[in-house]
Each structure stands twice: as structure tokens, then as C-alpha cells.
Amino acid sequence: MSISRAWLPLALMTTLIVALGAYAAMRQDAFLTTYNLGNLLLSTMPLALVAIGQTNALLVGGFDVSVAALMTMCVVVASFTLQPDKSWDVLLVGALAVVGVGLATGVFNATLIRVLKLPSIIATLGTLSILEGAALLLRDHPEGFINPNAIEALNAGVSFVPYAFIGVVVLAVLADIWLYRTRTGLALRAVGLDDSSSRRLGMATGRTVFLAFVICSLMAAVAGFYSAAQVQIGSPIIGNYALESIAAAVLGGASLAGGKGSFVGTLLAALFLTEISNVLPLFQQPTEYAQMTIGVLILLALVLYQAPELLARLRTSWGGVGRLRTRQGEAAG
């Protein structure tokens, strides 16, 4: 990938964020207030975290559609383990329980995909259904408040910028540096780009794919904390994060074929998607427009980011057709 193409998603996302922000700021006074901006950054958190996790799965050439259900599950678990009036050490154990759910889910998904060789889409679809059911079993309607001290701690910040947001920015930057400036990052990209060659070069491809899915679930669990901080109650219905996390990763430059992506790009895209949902109510527009815009943006990004390949595909005699990679995770001999 040429340098300019690698930076295109980042530049595009930044431009869109600034442009939409400028437009909203000019038309609506309510946009450029510390209250609204703080709110925007906080509500970016769940999507940003889960999308960063999703980027891991995409980097090794897979999908994880179970992340939304896992986040719901984490919120529901948190409503039991992070109850009000509990001391900090109890809360810590409770938080570990939530992370544990994420870890267990990650290992379960990774085992299905890497050991039992199921296509990642079907494997995580199954997990999605199971987690949804489990969450409903625990809470069939929203109840059980989340500890307000914990929420406050999660939402704390300097001026209007939450610490957590600073944290996720640092995380994304470090992760990108890791991905593009270290040996293990390079190895991860190599496995995503070409599993067979990587195996010939003596790399542990199986372990890499396994870890990527575990990290994806762990990030979804952490995202669950911020969802919990937002809804503040054990609700069995949490937003449409499966699509939005994939959308953010793709808008941020991740390739569905694996091996390409940027955590910073993902974060910017998550910020932009949240900005859309933040701005629309200011203009008294219904939220459907946000969903439609996201859908259209995904399709545009798919076409725009790989325009040269698409042109080449149309020109070559064997155009081929879009097909799922059902042997995902299985080394091609």
C-alpha cells in the first residue's frame, strides 16, 4: 500500500469530523459547549473500545459479530457485581468478573474458530445468540442499578475531556505504533495478509489468530463498562455495536481480507459515527438518519478505499464474485 493510500482513511475521517463539527457549531449553539463535547467524547467510548477490538479480528482476516451481545452480557453482569453501596474492593472483584466474562467468551470464540475450524462469522453468530439468551436469563427487563461511584470514576476527566478518552487515544496510538513499528505487529499483519507464507516462514499463525479473537472479546468487555456507565442499569438491550464496530474499523481503513488496518483510524471513525448521532438531535432530526448515513458510509468506504483494485477487477477477464472465506483460520497447505 502506498503511503498516501494508508493515510487516506485517517485524513478522510479527520476532515469529516471537523467539517461536521464546524457545520454543527455554526448552526447550533448547543454543539460547541463543554457539556455537549464532554458528552460526545464519553458516548464515543463504548464504540471506540469495541471497534478497536474488532480491528484485531479484522486484521487476522476474521469477523466477530458477537461483540454487541457480549457488551450486553457485560452490562447485565455488571448490574449484579457492581451494585450500589458496595465497597471498592468488592467492586474490583466485580469488575474482574466482567473482564472474566469477556475472557471466557474470547477463548470460546477463538477455540471454535482456530481449533474446531468453524468460519468466524458462523462461530460468532452462534456465540451471539447464546450470549443474548444468557443476558436475558439474568435480566429479562432493565433492572439493577450500577454503582454510581464506579460510574463517576469511569466518567471522570479533566475539564470536559474524560480521562478514559485520553486513555483510549493513547491506546490507539500505541497500538498503531505496535502494529507498524514492531516485530510482533509486523508478524500479525503478515499472518493476516498471507497465512500460508507466514507458516512457511515459521511463524505461529495459530496462536496469532487465537490471541486476536481473545483480545477482541476483552476489548468488548471493557467497552461494556462504558456502556454500563451510560445506561446505568442492567439492561438486556444495548445498541447495534456489531455493525457499528465493523463499520468503524472499515471506515478507519481496515481491510476485510485481513492484514491492513489502523487503530487510530478506527478511533477517529468511531468518533465520527458518534458525532453523527450527537448532532442529529440538535437539528431535531430522527436517529434513523444516523443509521442510514452509517450504512451508506460503509458502502462508500468499501468502494473508495479499494478503488484501484475495483477498477482492476472490472477490467480483468476473470472478475470473480464476492464470497465468504469459509476456511478462515485454516492454514492453506
Binding site: R183, L186, A190, L193, D194, S198, L201, K260
Partner: peptide, 19 residues
């Protein structure tokens, strides 16, 4: 290898490094 072990979308330097 006769069929090579290059990761085609990585640079020459990166392929050498991984080797």
C-alpha cells in the same frame, strides 16, 4: 520454496525481516 514464501503486500525489507 519453489512457490515462494513471500507476503506479497509487505515490503522487501519487511519480508527479509520476517525471515
Amino acid at each position: 520454496y519453489q512457490a515462494y514464501s513471500h507476503v506479497l503486500d509487505l515490503s522487501v525489507g519487511e519480508n527479509l525481516y520476517l525471515a
